[in-house]
């Protein structure tokens, strides 16, 4: 996913990861930077991280994907190597208006990876295919 982000965002995630490893916290200055780079969805993404909403799914084939539980309880499947989220905000703000880099769900995935807060879950290969192809029951 990294290559899709501007350098400033990549550096920010690296800083968060490093500080979190040392202190188990994200200091205020990095939170402010996060808000500055990602706007209002930064706070919503931090909420999702607090609620342990991000799960890394793996199947026997080795394929991985992220699943994020949205505020309304809906499940969103996001890819490991590039940005896509089936949520309306991604379709509207990112794809249509080109106003944001990503939605709160993808940002939550980045933050969980940086802070080690990702839940782990195994699924079958068929379940993984259904989730990736968007045919799994929500």
């Amino acid at each position: 996913m990294r290559s899709f982000l501007p350098a400033v965002a990549e550096q920010l995630f690296r800083d968060i990861q490093q500080t979190h490893q040392e202190t188990s916290q994200i200091p205020d200055d990095l939170l402010i930077a996060l808000k500055f780079v990602f706007g209002p969805c930064a706070l919503q993404a931090l909420d999702l991280v607090d609620q342990h909403s991000v799960t890394c799914l793996s199947s026997p084939s080795g394929r991985k994907a992220f699943q994020v539980i949205g505020g309304s309880g809906r499940l969103y499947t996001c890819f490991v190597s590039c940005h896509y989220c089936p949520c309306p905000a991604f379709a509207y703000t990112v794809l249509r208006r080109n106003e944001g880099l990503l939605c709160k769900h993808i940002l939550a995935v980045y933050l969980c990876r940086a802070t080690g807060g990702t839940q782990q879950e195994s699924v079958s290969d068929q379940q993984m295919s259904a989730l990736l192809g968007g045919t799994a029951a929500p």
Binding site: F79, Y84, A91
Partner: peptide
């Protein structure tokens, strides 16, 4: 429509992610 844009993004992202996974293999 936005829904179709999202569909185009889904398909493209799935293709890229699948290629990235197959590259690992």
């Amino acid at each position: 429509h936005p829904g179709e844009q999202s569909c185009a993004a889904h398909l493209s992202a799935l293709l890229c992610d699948t290629a990235a996974f197959l590259t690992q293999l």
